[in-house]
Structures are given as C-alpha cells and as structure tokens.
Write a protein that binds this DNA or RNA. Structure first.
Lengths: 132, 132
DNA sequence: AGTATTTATTTAGCTAGGTAAATAAATGTT
DNA sequence: AACATTTATTTACCTAGCTAAATAAATACT
C-alpha cells in the first residue's frame, strides 16, 4: 500500500484525538466544535447547509445537533418551510466560544507551527491533487 | 479554524469511503484490508504487533480480527505464551490476496497518480512536520 | 383539486475509532 | 512458595462516520 495513505489516515486520526483531548476542558468533541465554529461564522443554518458545508452525510449532523441541543450549545428553530429546522448558537455557546477559540488557536499553532505559510499552502494543493 | 485541518480530515474521510467502495467487490472494508496486508507482509503476528504497527488501540483490532475470523480470512492460534493469540492468513486469504492487491494498486494509481514522486515525498514530509 | 415527485429531516443499523475496566497468564519480589 | 506487578487480550460503552429506508412538508403535473 502506498505509504501516503497510511501516513494520511494515521495523522488524521492522531490529530482528531489530540483535538478531542484539548477540547475536553470545554466538554466538547471535535465534531461538535466543527459545528459550533460553522454556526459562529455563518450565523443560523439549516441542517442541510451544515452537512453540505462540512461534507458529511445528514444523519451524522442530525445526531450531533441533537446532542449539542441537549447540552445547551444550540437551539433548533422551525423554519418557514416547515420541513427544515434552523440551528442557531445558544447564548451559552456565544458566551463560551471566545475561550474555546483561544484553545483551538493554540492547538493549531502547536500542530502546524512547524510549517511555513508556503508549506501549508503547498500541503493543501497536494491534498487537492489527490483525485480531482 | 486553519483550513489545513478541514482539508485533511475531509480528504481522509473521502479516501476511506472510496477505498471501501472499491473493496466492496471483494467483500472487504478498508480497515480489514489494512490488517490482511499487514499479515501478508509480516507473516503471522500477535494482536499487539498488529495494533502497534497500525497505530490503533487494541480493542479495534480485537473486533476486526474476530470479524475477519468468522469471515474466514484469518486464523487465531494460541501462542507459546498463553496470553497471546497469533493471527495468520487463511488459505482462502492467500488465494484471494493477489486479486485484491491488483484492485488496490489500481485505486492508488487513480488517487495519487496526479502527483509526481517528488510531490508524494514532499507530501509525506509535510505531514510528518505536523507536531513533532 | 388530486396525485406524483422532490426535498429536509430522522431512524435504524453498520463499520471504525476511542477510553476504562475486567480477565488471565507471565514475571518479579520478598 | 506467596503475593504483587506487568502484559495481552477482551468486554462494555462512547463518539463519528456511512447507507438505506421512513416520514413529512413543499412543489410539480395533469
């Protein structure tokens, strides 16, 4: 097997584990944070907007949102189109996001700090080149 | 969030999904194939050797081996040290591995073919640079 | 208007990773 | 030899992705 795949999968697992470790102090998992971050940038979104943006399937998002709702991070609001549910950050989330963002920025600096900006760009270009 | 992480996680998911798709014709999942490939290269191994090599936790391997055993791909043999179980490829696996390897090589060529050898090396170097 | 199709979300059930704790055999210590 | 510690595997249970199918609302068609 091409070592690229082994290396890529392994680093991906490793980084999500690290991210989960770091997010423990905020009682969050990395996938939950991805959603909060998404909502923070875009404002309230429908489930469909979220899963399309994050590039995962709908059921994963349904489950994550349900969890985030019971934990008090997000609110589910009925849309005008009664089929869709709009998801928004709760005041609790708004309040805590700055501290979490700080944690994340430190984490990213630690993980990716050894790479120059050019190397980071190069890395993404190479990633994109795998299967067009 | 640094786009590197988003891109990395996403490509990792995408590639495992593609790999699963391609392995369907052999009735295998990517994680199962990783173990078969490992055994093919190293010969019979203990569970501990396998999970250390693949860099995952022991319970994931226990589960996968149990599944591979009931499907007839591997055999579990008691070691001299009665605590450890030695895992070996079954004759069935030995028989089918060449065809599977062929499938995998074609898949890899498709996925990584757009990258030159230098780019592939560069990619791995950049991956390694993330968190030393 | 009534029916068929599409779209948004959810449910059920699968693989695949993780941690924590249980079990059983081997090894070390006194 | 008896007891404590370490090591290998397993079990139980969690997150997190996936597909397939169910449900419910909106839209299109005739």
């Amino acid at each position: 097997m091409n070592p690229i795949f082994h290396a890529l999968f392994q680093k991906s697992r490793y980084l999500t584990n690290c991210l989960n470790e770091v997010l423990k102090q905020h009682n969050l998992y990395s996938s939950q944070w991805a959603i909060l971050y998404c909502l923070h940038n875009h404002g309230p979104m429908t489930l469909t907007q979220i899963w399309k943006y994050l590039n995962v399937e709908a059921p994963s998002i349904t489950r994550a949102i349900t969890r985030l709702e019971t934990l008090g991070w997000v609110l589910r609001i009925d849309g005008e189109d009664k089929r869709e549910k709009i998801v928004a950050l709760s005041p609790y989330a708004e309040e805590h996001l700055p501290a979490i963002t700080k944690t994340i920025l430190a984490f990213e600096e630690e993980m990716v700090g050894a790479l120059t900006v050019e190397e980071q760009q190069q890395f993404i270009i190479l990633l994109e080149k795998m299967k067009g």
